[in-house]
């Protein structure tokens, strides 16, 4: 198994706040790796730093064997990394189709049509609504659009930040099913979630973050049975 992502001793500051204090983890090809933890543990900060939106103060990030520490976000997309951000952040004033086209911004125009078909197949709802202004979609549809948009860049590593946030339980299940399917079809996934139960049940491996540090790690199965994890994140 080759390493897709290798993060070592990452330190990130927000102004004077030391948000990430020496986080190390890795993601292998074909895995679903999840970072779980409470609010403010540094999960999103870690993802945003890997994606190039934040600059680390210390530490190294390697993507497919190449150092990408400090490289800007828009250049990483071309290298095969995609982050589906927290709160979805779709372009509300653009149509569904335009949103998807933006996802493929760094790819040659000739390849876009095929990817659009692939995403429409995965999310038939988006095909029905391709002309609609994205801001008028429901919350669940917006999440599907955000994921579809990320897929349009044909990522080798897809990072998802709280994809279940604010969704009804039935939609949450649907979103996690989609993530599993994407993974089975060959996309490596790094998932950040508050819904630890769901995340651990589909994850190959997981890391537990607490106030900027990794406190436990292991396979999803093992962490689901771990007493301290159960008490802290799974409601006993």
């Amino acid at each position: 198994m080759s390493k897709v992502l290798k993060v070592e001793d990452l330190h990130v500051y927000y102004g004077s706040i030391h948000a990430i204090k020496g986080v190390s983890f890795e993601v292998n090809e074909g895995e679903i790796v999840t970072l779980i933890g409470a609010n403010g543990a540094g999960k999103s900060t870690t993802l945003n730093t890997v994606a190039g939106l934040l600059k680390p103060a210390k530490g190294s990030i390697e993507f497919k064997g190449e150092s990408i520490t400090g490289i800007e976000a828009h250049k990483l997309v071309k290298k095969g990394m995609s982050l589906c951000p927290e709160g979805r952040r779709i372009f509300q004033e653009l149509t569904v189709k335009e949103n998807l086209e933006m996802g493929a911004y760094s790819r040659p125009t000739a390849e876009i049509a095929a990817s659009l078909d692939m995403v429409y197949e995965q999310f038939p709802r988006l095909k029905e609504r391709y002309k609609q202004i994205a801001g008028t979609l429901s919350g669940g549809e917006q999440q599907m659009l955000a994921m579809g948009r990320s897929l349009m860049s044909k990522p080798d590593l897809m990072m998802l930040d709280e994809p279940s946030m604010g969704l009804a339980p039935i939609l949450v299940e649907q979103i996690f099913e989609i993530i599993s399917t994407l993974n089975k079809n060959g996309t490596t996934i790094l998932l950040v979630e508050q819904n630890a139960q769901m995340a651990l049940s589909i994850a190959s491996r997981a890391y537990v973050l607490e106030t900027g540090r990794i406190v436990t790690s292991g396979t999803g199965e093992k962490l689901l049975k771990d007493d301290s994890v159960r008490k802290a994140y799974l409601g006993g």
């Binding site: 976000a73 828009h74 250049k75 997309v77 372009f91 509300q92 653009l94 086209e101 933006m102 760094s106």
Partner: peptide, 24 residues
């Protein structure tokens, strides 16, 4: 145009636009 659409994307959300590979 592609550039024009990218402009609208940047005007709405710079961070999200950068995540699409758009050079803000």
């Amino acid at each position: 145009t592609k550039m024009g659409k990218a402009m609208r994307a940047v005007s709405e959300d710079r961070g999200a636009a950068a995540l699409m590979g758009i050079n803000v």
